[in-house]
Amino acid sequence: MSLKLDGQIVAVTGAFGILGMAVAEEIVRQGGRVAMIDRAVEPAGILPALLADALLLGNIDLTSYESAQKAIGQIVSELGALDALVNIAGGFRWETLADGDLASWDFLYAINLRTAATASKAALGALLKSSAGRIVNIGAGAALKSGMGMGAYAASKAGVARLTESLSEELKDKGITVNAVLPSIIDTPQNRADMPDAEFDRWVKPNDLAAVISFLLSPQASAVTGALIPVSGRV
């Protein structure tokens, strides 16, 4: 059986983090080539052997359209094309409205929603030249039902969901699919440190989420667009 992403060139934002690294590895495992974009200057620690040939683009501010355009231009210049974009760049803060800082709403909007919109806009020209363009966004289960202290985060991720839906309608007759995954709690070292008494085995493993994302990038998902797919583990 042929590899699902054989020959596809995929840009991943937030790629130096736990999920970004898992997604990048899965893309290569499925036969694709990956460009790894991140705000950090370089990955922490040793890069996995599987990613030895990945194009690394560090110190990229994806809240800036000019910076995003430059990164996409470098990908096309060095790899020859761009077939797909995975928007992982983002972050989290837990704050109640009463005790929190209103600046958190602007911060989470910028890193969760604006980065996805900016990267997508910058990539559109290249994606439209692909025979099977793909955009996959990382939303959150909290975008559908929020909880205490989750307001700013959930609002920014709800924006990602609406961006996914609207952009899928905009592009559905132009050969580009746009979908989002909505994870619950991802099993990362930071989340374990923040919730040490939780049942970690109920959380979503980064590799499992990466497999869903890989499917959405693949030719097998050509009929799926505008979908908001819960990936909840057993939370």
Rank of each mutant, 00 (worst) to 15 (best):
I135A: 02
M148H: 01
A117L: 15
T115K: 11
L144K: 14
L127D: 03
S120I: 07
G141K: 12
S131I: 05
I135Y: 00
I135V: 05
G147Y: 13
L124H: 11
R114D: 10
G147W: 13
A143M: 06
G133L: 04
A122S: 06
R114P: 08
S146L: 02
A140Q: 00
T118F: 13
K129L: 04
S146K: 00
K145S: 11
A119L: 06
G139K: 03
T115D: 09
I138Y: 01
I138C: 02
I135L: 03
T115Y: 08
V136F: 00
K121P: 03
L127M: 01
A126L: 10
G133Q: 02
N137V: 05
A122G: 06
L144Q: 14
K145D: 09
G141D: 07
A122F: 06
K121M: 06
G141I: 00
R134K: 15
K121T: 06
R114G: 05
G147N: 06
K129M: 07
K129N: 10
I135S: 05
A119T: 13
R134C: 13
K129A: 11
T118Y: 14
G139R: 01
A132C: 05
M148S: 00
S131C: 02
L127W: 08
A116E: 12
G125H: 14
A117H: 15
L128F: 07
T115E: 07
A142F: 00
S146W: 03
G139E: 00
R114V: 14
G139A: 02
A140M: 05
K129T: 08
A122M: 06
S120Y: 07
A132N: 10
S130W: 03
A117E: 14
G147D: 12
A123F: 15
N137H: 14
S131Q: 12
A126D: 10
K145E: 13
G133S: 06
T118W: 12
A117Y: 15
G141N: 05
S146P: 00
G141Q: 10
N137C: 11
I135Q: 04
I135E: 02
A116D: 10
R134W: 11
V136G: 01
S130K: 01
K145G: 02
A143W: 01
K145I: 10
G133C: 04
A132W: 01
K121D: 03
S146Q: 00
A123H: 15
M148D: 04
L128C: 05
T118E: 14
T118H: 13
S130H: 01
M148L: 13
S146C: 07
V136A: 03
G133H: 01
V136H: 04
L124C: 11
A117I: 15
L128K: 13
I138N: 05
K129I: 01
A122T: 03
S130A: 08
L127A: 07
T118P: 14
S120E: 10
G139F: 04
L128T: 09
S146A: 14
R114H: 10
G147K: 09
A123I: 14
A119S: 15
A117P: 02
A122P: 06
R134M: 12
K145R: 15
R134Q: 11
